[in-house]
Simulated scan of single mutants.
Amino acid sequence: MAAPVISVDNVGVRFQRDRGRKRSLKDMLGRKELRQAPDEFWAFRNVSFDVAEGESIGVVGRNGQGKSTLLKMVAEVLIPDEGSVAVRQGVAPLIEITGGFVDDLSVRDNVFLAAGLHGKSKDEIADEFDDIIEFAEIKDFVNTPYKHLSSGMKVRVAFSVIARLDEPILLVDEVLAVGDRGFRRKCYARIEEMLAEGRTMFFVSHNDGDLKRFCQRGIYLDKGKLQYDGPIDEAFDRYTTDYA
């Protein structure tokens, strides 16, 4: 049997409610006990699962239950406080999608910057630049400073860049909730193309239609725990039943 492309092993993540209070050196060095200070809480704890290559997984739960946090760990931009996350393939993250774009740079410069940060060479970006701009529908704004774009236009640019990456694992966090209906249809079609190529996907959404369209498996996070891992219909049904 092939090794899983993602292994989440007994993971826990904690945050501080009072961001103004810094942990002392003693707090940071005393990680063996991982005692919870009064102003700390666990987003989730003791979460374990494996993901096979080509699986498409919907992550469901209320706001604040750790869905985006889970994706950030898979993207390796967040380190868990307990346990481990092993990711054995490259990741294309559609999470906090406009992060990394620079307001004062032009759209053109931002495309080269963002794609370059994800490993694309300058020549590769140049070859794909026209397709990126056409997909984003911003041909008349390529030399406009990014800060002057509308929020919807910014999302279109960012999605168009990330959707051109060749990474085998795709992370999608509520990005399809933004933008007009026509652009969402294009996003849906592009995601379906990527899944048809055999990519692995984590998909966070509150939209049951989108979840059931793209995902076969569902993970339900609630009250700091993995409450269910199985068919997406059952995962969403359990979630909606708990909070009907």
Rank of each mutant, 00 (worst) to 15 (best):
L34C: 01
A43Y: 01
Q36C: 08
R31G: 06
R21A: 15
L25M: 13
D39I: 03
G30Q: 13
L29R: 04
A43P: 06
N46T: 06
Q36P: 01
R23C: 08
M28I: 15
Q36D: 04
F41L: 00
F41I: 00
R23V: 11
S48W: 02
A52H: 04
S48A: 09
K22W: 02
Q36Y: 02
P38Y: 01
D27N: 14
F44A: 01
R21Y: 07
A37M: 06
K26F: 13
S24F: 10
D39Y: 10
G20N: 14
R21N: 09
V51M: 09
R21W: 04
L34W: 01
E40A: 02
A52W: 06
R35M: 08
L25W: 14
L25E: 12
M28W: 12
F49D: 05
V47D: 05
E53W: 08
E33N: 10
D27S: 03
R21H: 13
K22L: 15
F44W: 01
L29G: 07
R45S: 09
S24I: 04
F41H: 00
P38S: 03
Q36L: 12
R45F: 05
P38T: 00
D27M: 13
K22I: 12
G20A: 05
E40Y: 04
E53L: 11
R31H: 13
A43M: 09
M28Q: 09
K22R: 15
A37D: 05
R31K: 14
F49H: 10
G30D: 08
F41D: 00
F41P: 00
L34F: 01
S48T: 09
E33P: 03
D39K: 10
R31F: 14
F49R: 07
L29P: 05
E33V: 06
P38L: 02
W42T: 05
P38G: 04
R23W: 14
A52S: 09
V51F: 07
D27H: 13
G20T: 08
W42E: 01
K26P: 03
R21S: 04
D50C: 10
P38R: 02
R23G: 14
A52Y: 03
K26Y: 11
V47F: 12
R21I: 14
R31E: 07
D50E: 15
W42P: 09
K32N: 04
V47G: 06
R23Y: 11
V47Q: 03
E33L: 11
N46V: 06
R23D: 13
S24G: 15
